[in-house]
Design a protein around this nucleic acid. Structure first.
Ligand SMILES: Cc1cc2nc3c(=O)[nH]c(=O)nc-3n(C[C@H](O)[C@H](O)[C@H](O)COP(=O)(O)OP(=O)(O)OC[C@H]3O[C@@H](n4cnc5c(N)ncnc54)[C@H](O)[C@@H]3O)c2cc1C
Length: 473
DNA sequence: AGCTAGTTCTG
DNA sequence: AGAACTAGC
């Protein structure tokens, strides 16, 4: 009589036990499950390394260890090369399959192919399934093939695609006793004891339980009802703040969608933001080249500025534009930035300062708790007008007007630029336009930044006539 | 999920 | 003078 069948469940950015399709699959098809996380050296040393995200990851792994212990199981955490370590653990535990949530980034795909090749050499199966997104790329196909390059037709198909059922958290996970007998390894140690660069007191609790509480609160909030308008207010808590939980998979996007169910304008708008997340993930899957290159190749002919002083002023929040500086300081202090603010600062860097979007992309990846290769790249290429369905390049934000409109009382600026709080005579939205001498000099006057951007983009695109420009609106 | 500059309308 | 409108980037 054969022994119990065993599968490895390889966790990556799906660090939860609720609504976990790969976990449900493993439990339904195998007698025993061995949960595993591999600290890939790339996490600690790679291009997108971030102390803030490593700190969050360490906490999320401790949370997962706890959730698994509660269910009579345990998380094995090892550090090194997954291509070697995953097959080794499979052989040691007698596993005949490795189950995981499919990852769609260029590196994730390369890694998974290389692990699956080395597994099949040992006769071990490799099963990668859904769980990262609401819908997989194959579930929202473009009739003509390839990726959707415009959001609205994608969104129509996305809304029409059938939704999978929620998988409840299991009450117990059968795991080999030699695995549960081993004490939990402190993930912080394997991650190099990460110290966040953001202010610890302003960081969210990185546990699944806390993420579920955040979701509960958001699902029952007034802000969700008012999200269609409130999402653009820099000075209010008008958005869900669930991005880091979706990034690390403490929450599944399907769970978020179902729990925020409703047909009001706020609900529908919120769901469409989850569709944007899928849109950019699918795009990167179809066209991995956009990770490095502009989607609109002709715009890689823009002569980007490399002015190190200007870039440093932008990074540290010292451009002289109050709303830009508030946003950049919010990022450094909290590892998060409001979506409207991301658009404003990305537009400012790429248009007013004429700096390559990849410089901004890298800075965001170094600090954002929700830093995600697909959404971040999509957001930057949108703002730089190099992407799919981008901001047309001639629509350039005026940071002062954006601040007045979306921070109408100036509270956002006063929160993050304290030297502008309590300046006599600088009341309400006027904080967005401090008179000369009151605040830092603007590193470039708006009119100059705007006209140099218009000239450079016109040159790079071969100065299309106005009919072409209008068609892209 | 633009903004500017120029023109025409209004009082 | 200032609103309202609009072509063009
Ligand atoms: C230049 C730039 C860079 C960005 N980089 C990232 C990033 O690295 N990671 C990231 O998750 N989002 C990124 N975004 C999208 C968006 O700004 C954040 O998802 C959002 O601000 C997170 O806050 P929230 O959870 O309160 O959002 P909510 O408004 O509550 O939205 C709910 C969820 O929908 C998703 N979402 C919302 N807006 C977008 C969007 N435009 N694109 C893709 N997904 C979206 C996020 O998962 C978010 O948590 C970027 C946007 C821009 C303009």
């Amino acid at each position: 009589m054969p022994g119990p069948s065993t599968a490895i469940l390889w966790f990556r950015r799906d660090l939860r036990v609720h609504d976990h399709p790969a976990l449900a699959y493993a439990l339904a098809n195998f007698d025993q499950v061995v949960p595993l996380f591999v600290v890939d050296n790339r996490l600690v040393h790679g291009r997108w390394r971030s102390p803030n995200r490593l700190w969050f990851l360490a906490g999320a792994l401790r949370s997962l260890q706890h959730e698994l212990r509660e269910r009579d199981s345990a998380l094995t955490v090892v550090r090194g090369d997954p291509t070697a370590l995953v097959p080794r653990l499979a052989r040691e535990t007698g596993a005949t399959a490795v189950i995981m949530t499919r990852d769609l980034t260029p590196y994730g795909r390369w890694r998974d192919v290389s692990v699956s090749l080395s597994l099949s050499a040992s006769g071990i199966r490799h099963v990668a399934g859904r769980g990262l997104l609401v819908h997989e790329p194959e579930e929202v196909p473009r009739p003509a093939g390839g990726p959707f390059t415009v959001f609205s037709p994608f969104h129509r198909r996305w809304l029409a695609a059938p939704m999978r059922a929620i998988e409840p958290a299991p009450s117990t996970i059968a795991t080999p006793p030699e695995v549960t007998a081993a004490p939990d390894v402190g993930p912080g140690e394997l991650l190099g004891d990460p110290v966040p660069t953001a202010d610890r007191a302003l960081l969210p609790d990185p546990s699944e339980a806390a993420a579920r509480r955040r979701l509960d609160r958001w699902a029952g909030s007034e802000a969700l009802l008012d999200y269609a308008a409130g999402r653009d207010r820099l000075d209010l808590e008008g958005t869900s703040r669930l991005s880091q939980d979706l990034r690390f998979g403490l929450l599944s996007p399907v769970d978020v969608l179902v729990r925020t169910g409703g047909d009001g304008s706020g609900h529908r708008r919120f769901h469409s933001e989850l569709a944007w997340r899928d849109f950019y993930a699918h795009l990167l899957w179809h066209l991995p080249r956009v990770a490095r290159e502009s989607f609109r190749a002709e715009l890689d002919g823009v002569a980007w500025s490399t002015d190190a002083g200007a870039i440093e002023s932008w990074r540290t929040g010292r451009t002289g534009y109050p709303v830009v500086d508030a946003a950049m300081r919010q990022l450094l202090a909290t590892g998060w930035m409001h979506n409207r603010a991301r658009m404003i600062v990305a537009s400012f860097l790429t248009k007013h300062l004429g700096v390559d979007w990849r410089v901004g992309e890298a800075h965001f990846m170094a600090h954002l708790l929700d830093g995600d290769p697909a959404s971040n790249n999509g957001g930057w290429q949108w703002a730089a007008s190099t992407g799919t369905d981008p901001q047309p390049w001639f629509r350039i934000f005026n940071p002062t007007l954006q601040g007045r409109r979306h921070d109408p009382d100036g509270a956002y600026v006063r929160r993050w630029v304290p030297e502008l709080a309590g300046v006599p005579g600088l009341d309400g939205a006027d904080v967005h336009e401090p008179p000369p001498g009151v605040y830092l000099d603007r590193i470039v006057p708006h009119a100059d930044g705007r006209s140099r951007a218009l000239a450079e983009y016109a040159r790079a695109t071969g100065m299309p006539d106005s009919r072409d420009s209008r068609r892209r609106c």
